[in-house]
């Protein structure tokens, strides 16, 4: 079974505005606005327009094995909101 891969919209698929410690994200394709805290934009940038496996993302952020749980949680959350695709 192939590993799950994740993809965020490519450049231009999102509008992002930093507001104090929160970031407002406008998802163009759905017209829905989301509010996120700091790690989310970096995470989405790491997947912008490219399919990435969990391993690749964990490496990109230098995560140890026991930290992958938090990453998975963030990814699932993003998929649930429609900001990130999973396949």
């Amino acid at each position: 079974m192939a590993a799950t891969r994740y993809r965020a919209p490519a450049q231009g698929g999102l509008r992002i505005a930093a507001l104090d410690d929160l970031v407002a994200i406008y998802h163009r394709a759905s017209g829905i606005t989301h509010l996120a805290v700091a790690p989310v934009p970096e995470l989405m940038e790491a997947m912008a327009g490219e399919w990435r496996t969990l391993d690749a993302l964990a490496d990109a952020f230098g995560l140890a094995a026991d930290e992958r749980g938090a990453l998975i949680e963030r990814l699932e959350e993003l998929v649930a909101t429609g900001l990130v695709e999973a396949a």
Partner: peptide, 11 residues
């Protein structure tokens, strides 16, 4: 009130 909170309340 911070910009983030103001934003959400105004939506």
């Amino acid at each position: 009130v911070g910009a983030g909170e103001a934003f959400v309340r105004l939506t």
